[in-house]
Design a protein around this nucleic acid. Structure first.
Lengths: 343, 343
DNA sequence: TTGAAAGCGGTACCAA
DNA sequence: TTGGTACCGCTTTCAA
């Protein structure tokens, strides 16, 4: 029923070894036969068998390298859980995982870590890295050398990555606006927006989605300020407190960054607990606690565990199936959570 | 590094064949050696290799049988998509799927379909069926005969199933209440609840979760009526219209059943579009359209595709790993969706 | 009751 | 550039 290499071998008159080489773009096959075999495989609907391939590759493991700026950043915990899960699941199919963690978004450090991963013989990569020209060039280079790259969570524009696994930031902002509009109908909304960095692509997209959706819904609203918490708790608390002092009429707060939420919570508690309608992003321990304490009304989450898991799974799939040049992006959901989700 | 049968064979002094038989509870091994081998496997941390197993079992497929009451019930479409996905994913690991669909919840029909599945040599089953004594007995029987059963979406109480894959209905109701409370603060809530059948375990749990959570939140609310739509559009429309006529002060509607939502929409449109805050359950085409048209404010969904996929995946896992008597339930999320999720 | 060996699908090495 | 073959981990058949 299912077509195997042996079938192709019989049908074409060459040996299984040759068929295998032809299908895997090995150079030591004549272009003639290679084309003929590929044609035949196409016609007969040949699909490689993962079990067979995995077994044969047991000693020659398929190593995927991972780079995460996860040191001191609890958001990445769930991404790492997802990676671990995929690693265990695909171990007996010949997959091996090397995870390298760095702190922050320094381009040089990311580049040198990438070089190390390549050094260690990784056959594919999954990266959460910076949208920077040198990084882009490095990724394109890897891709040209047949090392596919998947981007996690953070896009690098216009590079030859296999695909992107992450959230739709703009939509996340839209949904925050929709929740606000539904919860505070017929009220004048005085909104304070807190981001990590205005220049951060994801945060900026959220803010755009948020304000544009409020406009589309013809809400009676005003964004009184957009402040930067620099993705850390201290600064977030300071700028939030200052903003709340400057604008005593604020009644809604949209926190478009996952990091620094603890500082936001502190600022709200210091000011007034019941006064604000608060929407935050991304589920980490602190956020959960603030939701449970009724400080935050809603969190819009982005399935980090799924991101880690799917990145690895997609690479495994890609490496064990016939090579296509590009895969579909995997966009995770914008999951709305409130107190009852955490109890 | 990883322990194989060959390792166990060397370490124990018996042949790989014997080791394999010992580990798979074949009767043709002396109890002595069997125990010794199992002990050794435990100590050395042996984990069977799916690739090897799958390959060797190529001709001797691992068939899983599925029963769904999915005929004329669009809710099951996504469950079927999930099943299809898992089927494709695990095909080359030796998995084969037989799906039998029936219409409705007739016990005799379910029983005879189960018998057919067994007849066809299924080695494991995934069922969405009725919580009934005869069904329970049948499942226990299968389980005793080493055919593991996973229940999808609908629980059968106190039976020897491997595990349950489905939603937390009570929590779903809680979340509906929380959304209502947040969206209509400081208002007197006059709530109409529409269920499929009051006797349906899932619907009843949702209603309980809903009302109990409103109480816990000390909302100013009254459930003016709970009506039964019999899971079909015509009846749902009729009873909803009648209820709205009887209770002109209703301002919120909680639809605790996924089926019949089209009838609910019709009733709301016929009465007044802007008057009600409406929460529905389960995402099907009609629900999406009603949300897009602002008839329904929120839908609380239950990841049906994940349910289908996971049921198959868990059975595959169970059949290719050392047998444990029980697996953890897989509880899917209560996913809140609003208009922006569908655009 | 046990051992030996074939074979599942694929890859890689060595010869030709 | 090709064919032949050993081998990956496991199950199952056939002999002993």
């Amino acid at each position: 029923m299912t077509v195997t290499l042996k079938d192709l071998s019989k049908a074409s008159g060459v040996s299984v070894g040759t068929v295998s080489r032809a299908l895997n773009d090995k150079s030591e096959v004549s272009e003639d036969t290679a084309k003929r075999i590929r044609q035949l495989a196409q016609e007969l609907g040949y699909v490689p068998n993962r079990a067979g391939r995995a077994l044969s590759a047991q000693k020659n493991l398929n190593t995927v390298g991972i780079l995460l700026p996860s040191i001191n950043s609890p958001f990445f915990d769930d991404i790492k859980h997802g990676i671990r899960e995929a690693e265990l699941e695909f171990k007996d199919l010949g997959l091996d995982v090397i995870l390298r963690e760095v702190e922050g978004w320094d381009v040089d450090e990311h580049l040198s870590t990438l070089a190390q991963l390549k050094e260690q013989g990784c056959k594919s990569l999954a990266l959460c890295t910076v949208d920077d020209p040198r990084i882009r060039a490095y990724i394109n280079d890897l891709s040209d050398n047949n090392i596919p790259v998947i981007l996690i969570n953070n896009m690098v524009q216009d590079c030859k990555s296999l695909c992107f696994v992450g959230p739709d930031y703009y939509r996340s902002g839209e949904i925050a606006a929709a929740l606000l509009a539904k919860s505070r109908q017929h009220q004048t909304l005085k909104v304070l927006i807190v981001v990590g960095l205005k220049s951060h692509h994801g945060h900026a997209a959220r803010v755009r989605g948020f304000t544009e959706e409020l406009k589309r819904r013809q809400c009676d609203f005003e964004v009184v300020d957009v402040v930067e918490g620099m993705d850390n708790d201290i600064t977030t608390q300071q700028v939030t407190m200052e903003a709340l002092r400057r604008h005593r009429d604020v009644n809604c707060i949209y926190m478009a960054s996952g990091s620094g939420v603890s500082g936001l919570g502190a600022a709200v508690i210091a000011d007034s607990i019941d006064k604000f309608f608060v929407i935050a992003c991304d589920e980490i321990y602190t956020t959960r606690e603030l939701v449970k304490s009724n400080i935050i009304d809603f969190v819009i989450c982005q399935e980090p565990k799924v991101q880690g898991y799917q990145a690895i799974k997609l690479l495994h799939e890609y490496m064990s199936k016939p090579r296509t040049s590009k895969m579909d992006d995997y966009i995770v959901g914008n999951i709305i959570k409130l107190k009852n989700h955490f109890e």
